[in-house]
Amino acid sequence: MKPAHSEFPAPPAQLDHDNCRGVASILSRVGDKWSVLVIMMLFNGPKRFNEIKRLIGSISQRMLTLTLRGLERDGLVTRTVFPTIPPRVDYELTDLGRGLSKPVIALGTWAMDHMEQIEAARAHFDQRNDTA
């Protein structure tokens, strides 16, 4: 039997249906790949839309717009419009978003550190299941 990891908090004693739905809703927002990448890109300060798009590279304009709107709706990102010609719009993490950025960056770092192991495990699994 494996020892319990004392570094992790215990799960809540009571997980009812409403709590699970609420948590699932939040995790679906903060756990999708585009939100994770946007949060990582905004970690070092505000950026303009096209700057975020350029940094991520593979995201469409529509998907970035939808992602930023969702993050703004959830209180993780603020959108500031400056009255210039043409108007300048900056996106920035809120305090809530900055709090989320730490575990998001940790997750991204973990993924980068273990990418080779996971790719090898996938190849092994696929090979084993292709012969079955």
Rank of each mutant, 00 (worst) to 15 (best):
T84F: 00
N129Q: 15
R98S: 08
G108I: 00
H114Q: 01
L100D: 02
A111R: 03
P9D: 06
L96Y: 09
D16C: 06
L15N: 07
E72S: 13
A121P: 04
G75M: 04
Y91M: 08
A106K: 07
L64T: 02
I39M: 04
S60Y: 15
L76M: 12
R88D: 10
T67E: 06
S6L: 12
I56P: 00
T84R: 00
W34C: 02
L93I: 04
S6G: 09
M1T: 04
G97I: 03
T94N: 02
G70A: 13
D95T: 06
D130I: 07
L15H: 07
S101L: 06
V38L: 04
T78Y: 08
V104Y: 00
R122V: 11
H114V: 01
E116F: 01
P11C: 10
T80K: 15
M40N: 02
D74H: 09
T84Q: 01
G70L: 09
E72C: 09
L42E: 00
A120D: 14
D90L: 14
A132D: 15
Q14K: 11
A10G: 10
F82E: 10
R122A: 07
D126K: 11
V30Y: 08
Q61D: 13
K102H: 14
R79E: 07
R122M: 11
A132Y: 14
L93W: 00
R88S: 09
R48I: 05
R98D: 08
P12D: 13
T131I: 12
